[in-house]
Design a protein around this nucleic acid. Structure first.
Lengths: 221, 221
DNA sequence: GTCTATAATTAGATAGAC
DNA sequence: GTCTATCTAATTATAGAC
């Protein structure tokens, strides 16, 4: 791992080295924080996962808290990216709403760390919780809340859907051991996605693909 | 806090002292483990919450792992107690199934630590996960799985229902900050309980209170 | 930019006094 | 049974060599 080069383009420049190392550390941090929580993770373990030294982690990210924020940014940035095209593509029909939910479930299956960061940070009022609420969560909440029907506060839908979508994958090890079902199995992911989608968006009473209430302006709106 | 007494019954005996102190430590441990996870909690913090010293925690529970098991036993023991009467009382009707789910949601609202222990221990294959799977989880799983319909594996229902029921209360601080809804509010608990109950047990197509499939032997069974 | 070494805290577990 | 003191190991953050 050369740090400088007399042959630009042949090996990594210092800037590339920097970006590359930081990226490896951030990915390792996401893994560690998701597995053991913030308090249960050490910068030494993170450094080892990233194949580097503990001192270098402190060099790139002055404090453990700053590293956590960088990890959260990367994690939730990926999410926003992967769901970005959804809102526009999704029409007003029930099947479109279901497909949007299926995509949300698949996302939670691919990135269980999302669930772990949310739970780890959300359980009490501290800097990490406030950081998520001020940066990444509003968009996420709004994305789900548009599926809300009736006059019940969208918070009920949001947390019920988020929980139903992600717990299976957030405790995958336990699920395997307890039920024999492997949440890493693609078929299991698809079954769960469809199950949750139909749970939250059942067929309309008349069997039509009518829009969800509140999704579009009604005739008397 | 006298440790011995010449007046039996007047102040606590040594055995009573022991039981009392251990109980205080266990409750403090449940709090701490739920807030910061296993790795993020220190026996010093737990001792402080229990108004005692760190050394005494090690005296009563030789290791941190043993303290965690005692905490888990107390926590899940309470659960079993509070839901114990349900299976018998619940009939085969849909409204009975809904009431069973409402009770499950209320339990998660009262003891968010249940959710935190499950998530903290369930995310990877270690001693704590195995302990829960071998002791407390089978009963819990069976209690929910009896509501299962169709040929979909009960694991999907179990984790969807558990997630939908408990996430709101497991990230109560975040919910307050993000949505303005306070999960500690009794009305919010009831609304969530009813919402989740109707989500998982919708009205039958014919509007009847017909039994759930598989709940009772069918005519051709 | 990276590694090694170290400083200052904090961790869990143990021993001794009462 | 409880408290205080202590030991050993592990933590984060910093400094120096390359």
């Amino acid at each position: 791992m050369a740090t400088t080069s007399a042959y630009p383009g042949r090996v990594a420049t210092r800037a590339e080295q920097r970006a590359n190392t930081r990226a490896r550390i951030v990915e390792a941090a996401i893994e560690a924080f998701a597995e053991h929580g913030y308090g249960g993770s050490s910068t030494r373990d993170i450094a080892a996962r990233a194949n580097t030294s503990q001192g270098l982690v402190s060099y790139h990210f002055d404090t453990k808290a700053e590293l956590w924020r960088a990890a959260a940014d990367h994690l939730f940035g990926d999410v926003a990216e992967s769901l970005r095209t959804e809102p526009e593509r999704v029409g007003a029909g029930r099947e479109a709403a279901r497909e949007s939910i299926r995509a949300f479930v698949r996302l939670n299956a691919r990135r269980p760390a999302l669930f772990h960061f949310l739970v780890d940070a959300g359980r009490h009022d501290d800097d990490r919780m406030r950081y998520l609420v001020e940066t990444h969560l509003p968009r996420r909440f709004a994305g789900v809340a548009r599926l809300s029907e009736g006059d019940l506060d969208p918070a009920h839908l949001y947390y019920a859907l988020a929980g139903a979508s992600s717990l299976l994958f957030g405790v995958a090890a336990e699920c395997r051991s307890l039920t024999g079902v492997d949440p890493a199995d693609d078929d299991v992911v698809e079954r769960h996605a469809d199950y949750v989608a139909r749970l939250f968006v059942p067929d309309a009473a008349d069997g039509s693909d009518a829009p969800l209430a509140g999704d579009e302006p009604s005739v008397d709106g």
